[in-house]
Write a protein that binds this DNA or RNA. Sequence first.
DNA 1: TCGAAAATGAAAATCATTTTCATTTTTCTC
DNA 2: GAGAAAAATGAAAATGATTTTCATTTTCGA
Lengths: 130, 130
Amino acid sequence: MENAPSLRNVKSQNAVLEALHQVNHATASEILDWLKVTQKNMKVSLTSVYRALNHLVATSQVKPLNFNDGQVRYELNTHAMHHHHMICTKCNLIQVLDLCPFDDIADKVKDTFSIQYHNFELFGLCGNCK
Amino acid sequence: MENAPSLRNVKSQNAVLEALHQVNHATASEILDWLKVTQKNMKVSLTSVYRALNHLVATSQVKPLNFNDGQVRYELNTHAMHHHHMICTKCNLIQVLDLCPFDDIADKVKDTFSIQYHNFELFGLCGNCK
DNA sequence: TCGAAAATGAAAATCATTTTCATTTTTCTC
DNA sequence: GAGAAAAATGAAAATGATTTTCATTTTCGA
Ligand SMILES: [Mn+2]
Ligand SMILES: [Mn+2]
Ligand SMILES: [Zn+2]
Ligand SMILES: [Zn+2]
């Protein structure tokens, strides 16, 4: 007989998910900082945050983001509409860009390339900084 | 009277430019490898390659590329038409994508964001791998 | 030719992330 | 519930790309 799916290890993963729910587009160490402040009872290491993130990415619950600043950021993949980002090069504000250029492009390359995913980011000055 | 602009240090920079001319989208260590093989007389260190690259990027002669594989790649900026890239997730082939989604998007965000540059990459399987 | 400024390379430092390894916690079986 | 096996954890070490330091060499201009 099948066992119920294990709930093993879900605690730290849930903590990370909860952190990402509160602090969107966060890095591993930003997530750790948030956990330290809000989950004073639970003791988590940076190693475990990375392990949880890697698992959550592998299971498509979380998406890694690269804004070319030397550290990976993460966002929830759950129920979030597909979107991209605008990053302010002065204050590092990250804004959501609901426009996606993908559909126009997809058709035009489909004969030579089988697309799995795409990256698109705008870098520039946000409303406050320009 | 003005002096002619200094040609100081141009040697290693020229060597790196020449390498990029031959090995497009190369990393710093790939450039060093190429220099070791082809410029047997000239002795270059990885440090100098990085220094030359940083200077060439700062002066817009070379453009850095990030394909999320943990190392920066570089391409010549000179006279190259604006383009993007398709990266094969199986064999790591990098193909040029002459389509650019930027113009369509630029208009729509120009009120809230002052765009300086943008990234766009397609990841998937190339013709050989799919 | 001489001295200042710039360039160079080797080695050390940095920094995000991963790996190792010993210890603790959870799960499964009896 | 006890005890063994499996998985999770954290501290510390390892990794790998890139930068910094620093002592030495090269180049430029007077
Ligand atoms: Mn987002
Ligand atoms: Mn290119
Ligand atoms: Zn800003
Ligand atoms: Zn391929």
